[in-house]
């Protein structure tokens, strides 16, 4: 189903003033660890393995994500990139028979351990899904505040609603109809609403699972702009099927293939001068 979006006009459209590959990358291409020395990583993944039943879907992944940066996970279908993302907030546990082992540190604290309630983890690591999934019975306002209300977090929800809607660049479009059904929004607006909803519980890390794959080119561009703004405050991991998108939005790129993390590094290096042959073959379109 993703074949169509790979050739969608987004990729070649010159609508964006800044070409992705010119985006400054904070690390030097030749540095062995893609981490700025001064800052400890926000997210550290050590020896992460995942299984679906007996299928070993992810093999010993190690990587780190610096704070306030965007990491893109790319690779062909079934390469493990989505599994990787789901493990980061233990959403994989929803799939019967799925399990993961390894260490996931956020600011040095292990959150994958059995002793940690996944609920605790998920409040720190928010997620945006492939297809917009607003709650159909709730208004726009209630959708944004849903995480706060359902978790029973007290406080001035109204203020948080406005703030997060502004952050997700939706405020001006919906401020006059906050009580309308969330389903009255367009697909792209719904997806930005879902981003606002995830931001409202004040996560530290935001996971995005192909957030634009169900959207049209214009809505996709808005989401990408938004990712640029959000990384001022949040650490973002985005899975994308679309290499041009990875190039445009990310600082680092991780290439997955058949359950292995083949290579991770600054986006510019991955796209122009990868160390691995398989990475090069993939980014140059020889397969996948």
């Amino acid at each position: 189903m993703n074949a169509a979006q790979e050739i969608s006009p987004v990729n070649s459209s010159p609508r964006r003033p800044v070409d992705s590959l010119d985006t400054p990358v904070r690390v030097s291409p030749e540095g062995p660890a893609p981490v700025v020395a001064a800052e400890p990583p926000k997210l550290t993944v050590k020896n992460l393995d995942a299984w679906y039943g007996s299928n070993h879907a992810l093999h010993g992944v190690n990587l780190t994500v610096p704070p306030r940066s965007v990491m893109a996970a790319i690779g062909p279908s079934g390469c493990g990139k989505s599994t990787f993302l789901r493990c980061l907030n233990r959403m994989h546990e929803l799939i019967p028979g799925a399990r993961a082992e390894g260490t996931l540190l956020i600011d040095g604290q292990d959150l994958l351990s059995r002793d940690v309630d996944p609920v605790t983890l998920r409040r720190r690591v928010g997620m945006v899904f492939q297809r917009p999934n607003p709650f159909p019975t709730m208004s726009i306002r209630d959708n944004v505040a849903a995480g706060l209300k359902l978790n029973g977090i007290p406080g001035n929800h109204h203020e948080i609603v406005e703030r997060t809607l502004r952050q997700s660049a939706l405020w001006d479009e919906v401020k006059d109809r906050l009580d309308a059904s969330a389903l009255s929004l367009s697909g792209g607006q719904q997806q930005r609403l879902c981003i606002a909803r995830a931001l409202a519980v004040q996560p530290e890390v935001l996971l995005m699972d192909e957030p634009a794959s169900a959207l049209d080119p214009i809505a996709t561009a808005k989401i990408e702009d938004l990712i640029h703004e959000l990384k001022e405050r949040y650490t973002i991991v985005i899975v994308t099927h679309n290499m041009q998108q990875a190039g445009r939005v990310s600082d680092q790129t991780a290439f997955f293939y058949m359950g292995d993390l083949i290579e991770v590094g600054p986006t510019e290096k991955i796209f122009t001068n990868p160390s691995e042959k398989r990475t090069e073959d993939y980014v140059t379109g020889k397969f996948g």
């Binding site: 600011d107 002793d115 309630d117 996944p118 609920v119 605790t120 949040y234």
Partner: peptide
């Protein structure tokens, strides 16, 4: 809005619970 505060986070979030 200030960036999410890393200092306050662990206190609010780290109550360990048994699975389920």
């Amino acid at each position: 809005m200030p960036p999410p505060s890393d200092i306050s986070a662990p206190a609010a979030h780290s109550t360990p619970a048994r699975a389920g």
